[in-house]
Design a protein around this nucleic acid. Structure first.
Lengths: 218, 218
DNA sequence: CGACAGACTGTTGTCGACAGTCGGCCGCTA
DNA sequence: TAGCGGCCGACTGTCGACAACAGTCTGTCG
């Protein structure tokens, strides 16, 4: 997410709230803020150098994304995931992505989406050694599956889950997670879409997800 | 979403923000706030008699739920749905609920969830004349499907969609919507769960949803 | 020594105000 | 009269301060 070169006309202007959202999101999904640790408004607002009101809006958004959970009396905590929750998250994710690939595979013009997917796989293959990069390219691929459907609601639901997915990966440890990012496995999904076999595509996604979840919680 | 009876010990202590959220939600899903109409903070805060900061938090939440969409320069509008978006919403909904019923049908103790579902159908059957009540009981049934799985993530995702579903119903008109609330159709889903036929249950949900969506946009 | 009243502290809920920015109106000018 | 520049109203972005409430500590009294 590097800053645009500000190509003359079209400046980069993000509100403090947005900046706070991304800052908190990465802080949580990177483990800088430990799970179950309390999120005190006054502390965070001072750390981020923003007012409490602005911070509150950002937290409300993260809460809706499932990265922050509410305790008694409005108190907020970094969400804690146990093994069951990780499985649950991946079950929902599987359902959403299965819908996506099924939609793509059933299209008459499905050939037009293949190049983008193959290119995404290419990027994934080139990120062999960098753990971070592999994870990012993996998530990019799966996000792309949803985006290509053009179903805004699906895209929105998936993105609401993205934070939880990242937390799952962090919770399990990066080493375990990269085991899920096999290019061959992903390639099978693209192949199924290309041949138009929607059942095969959906079941490939589902088995991929259930395997990934088992791998993470093992 | 009627107010709880405040059952002695455990009073009704809802923050202004929560009250604002539900007030705005019902205002939007009931059509009191027309789709695409601009939501001016100063106006709304005065109407609801709350400060802008409190209102902003509420709006941020509704935005995440998909009831409010953002325009240029932070301006917010009531979301507008076209036919395609309604179909998309119901496609995602179908995927989520198919996951739910599949999960329920594959349980060894699936019999334990049947009574609650049957009772929910009973309520639906008794709300023959009241359009509002039929819609509520229908949504209650579908929400119950998700809740019974015990999958918090699934429940959360479904609820994020609930507002959009209500908007779809309002957009299409209540008369069209009630055509989807046939007890027999819903009963078929419960039957499939009871017999443990997960494929049948899932496909019943999917066909129910695609029929409902077609009906709404017709 | 135990228990209870009271002050105290930490934290969230809520508010009003100021500042920045954009679109539109109006008058000036060539 | 068409173009141009500046003023004005309308909103959102952001902030700091006050109020309320629960939990904790402390001192005192039985």
């Amino acid at each position: 997410m590097a800053a645009q070169p500000a190509a003359l006309l079209g400046l980069e202007r993000t509100s403090l709230r947005e900046q706070a959202v991304t800052a908190l999101r990465t802080a949580i999904t990177s483990g800088a803020l430990a799970p179950s640790s309390p999120l005190v408004e006054t502390e965070l607002s001072e750390m981020l150098q923003i007012s409490r009101g602005t911070l509150r809006e950002a937290m409300r958004q993260l809460q809706q994304e499932g990265l922050i959970s509410a305790g008694a009396r409005g108190r907020l905590y970094v969400r804690h995931l146990d093994a069951k929750e990780i499985r649950d998250i991946f079950a929902v994710r599987a359902a959403l992505e299965a819908l996506a690939v099924r939609d793509l595979a059933e299209r008459a013009d499905r050939a037009s989406v293949i190049p983008a997917l193959r290119e995404s796989l290419e990027v994934m293959a080139h990120a062999e050694n960098d753990l971070e990069a592999r994870i990012e390219s993996d998530l990019n691929f799966h996000r792309l599956l949803c985006r290509l459907t053009g179903n805004e609601t699906l895209m929105h639901s998936w993105q609401s889950l993205e934070g939880s997915i990242r937390m799952s990966i962090m919770f399990a440890g990066l080493e375990k997670a990269v085991g899920n990012m096999d290019v061959g496995r992903h390639s099978a999904i693209v192949d199924a879409i290309e041949t138009g076999d929607s059942d095969e595509a959906a079941s490939a996604v589902r088995s991929h997800m259930s395997w990934a979840a088992s791998n993470l919680v093992s």
